[in-house]
């Protein structure tokens, strides 16, 4: 492999941690989709290790971008050049793959979003509010309850012969509805299909209310792998849905694109610590600061006893002293 320019995009989400390496033509040369499993640092280290074993000597990373709810954490560990929110990265990624995209539907592990674009620019977006019903983790949970692997979920839905209405507003309501329907004798296929329709209904009512959903429509995020949901979306909207080829790692892909853009425009050298940085031992420690009645929950990230970062404080006392080794602990 040549020593060309490559870019690394990292998306640390609540359910999955995704890493993507892109080349100069914005093609994905490697993508990893790992379960975060509640341990973002471990997931990230594991991902970096896999990439290190495969590419370490062969490629040079020219820029790194991080995104997702764990974007700060990922940035500290890898030395990111850009740290971007998920809306922007998803929009950038979809636009790169589907020219003229007007609507982006995205359903991830703990959040869902809709992004509307006009003339290639985001002009409106919405994210789910206080509840995570209708996201990936909701489906995960219901699949586990029915003892079906989430990968087979969609296949079951497509086998449904008659539709069953399940409440989609709340995961708890949905669950009691499902139990009731099971007990009255509905088939698992019909119930799963009903669940897919409920999720789509909830998404459209919650996020897309009053919004003009125009084609081309792109559906991305981990849930786009679920053919049951895809078909329910097509049915509900009466429009065609495009699943982009990197649908499950679009956040990471977008982060890599934005990193490339920044590095090229500003002619910068990357801050990337190298793949081996992941070999270091990282520890996250949480503590409650008792200096005032805010009782902030401080997170401290250390590597070999060196404090890399602190956050979670409201007054800035802890986050400001992150480079000060003596004040650790």
């Amino acid at each position: 492999m040549e020593k060309n320019s490559f870019y690394l995009g990292i998306d640390v989400g609540s359910v999955s941690t995704n890493l993507v390496i892109t080349n100069e033509k914005d093609e994905v040369v490697e993508k990893l989709y790992l379960r975060t499993g509640g341990q973002p640092i471990n997931a990230l280290r594991k991902g970096m290790q896999i990439l290190a074993d495969k590419f370490n000597k062969n490629i040079k990373i020219s820029g790194v971008g991080t995104t997702g709810s764990g974007r700060q954490l990922a940035s500290v560990i890898t030395g990111a050049d850009v740290v971007k929110n998920e809306i922007t990265t998803h929009a950038v990624a979809a636009q790169r793959l589907v020219t003229g995209v007007k609507t982006i539907l995205e359903i991830g592990g703990q959040d869902s979003k809709i992004i509307l674009l006009k003339k290639g620019v985001v002009y409106d977006f919405a994210m789910n509010t206080v509840c995570a019903a209708g996201t990936g983790s909701f489906l995960d949970r219901q699949a586990a309850r029915l003892e079906i692997s989430i990968e087979d979920f969609g296949t079951y839905a497509l086998k449904s012969k008659s539709s069953v209405r399940i409440a989609g507003r709340c995961a708890v309501f949905a669950e009691s509805d499902m139990i009731h329907k099971q007990q009255t004798g509905h088939s698992v296929e019909d119930i799963i299909n009903g669940l897919c329709e409920a999720l789509v209904r909830n998404y459209l009512n919650n996020l897309a209310k009053g919004k003009d959903i125009q084609e081309p429509i792109v559906f991305q995020g981990g849930v786009a792998a679920n053919i049951g949901i895809v078909s329910a979306f097509k049915k509900a909207l009466g429009k065609d849905i495009i699943i982009p080829k990197y649908y499950d790692v679009m956040g990471a892909y977008g982060a890599a694109l934005i990193a490339k853009d920044k590095i090229e425009k500003q002619n910068n050298i990357t801050k990337f610590y190298g793949f081996n940085a992941a070999k270091n031992d990282y520890k996250a420690k949480s503590m409650e600061c008792g200096d005032c009645s805010n009782l902030c929950e401080i997170i401290e990230i250390t590597s070999n006893d060196e404090v890399l970062a602190r956050w979670g404080d409201r007054c800035g006392k802890w986050s400001d002293t992150k480079s000060n080794k003596e004040s650790a602990g």
Binding site: K84, N85, I87, V121, V122, Y123, M127
Partner: peptide, 21 residues
């Protein structure tokens, strides 16, 4: 705070992006 930060950041990004365009 991640939820609030993400939305604020994305909102201002959107506005700036629009102007840039």
């Amino acid at each position: 705070e991640a939820g609030m930060d993400t939305r604020l950041e994305a909102f201002t990004d959107m506005i700036r992006w629009r102007y840039r365009d």
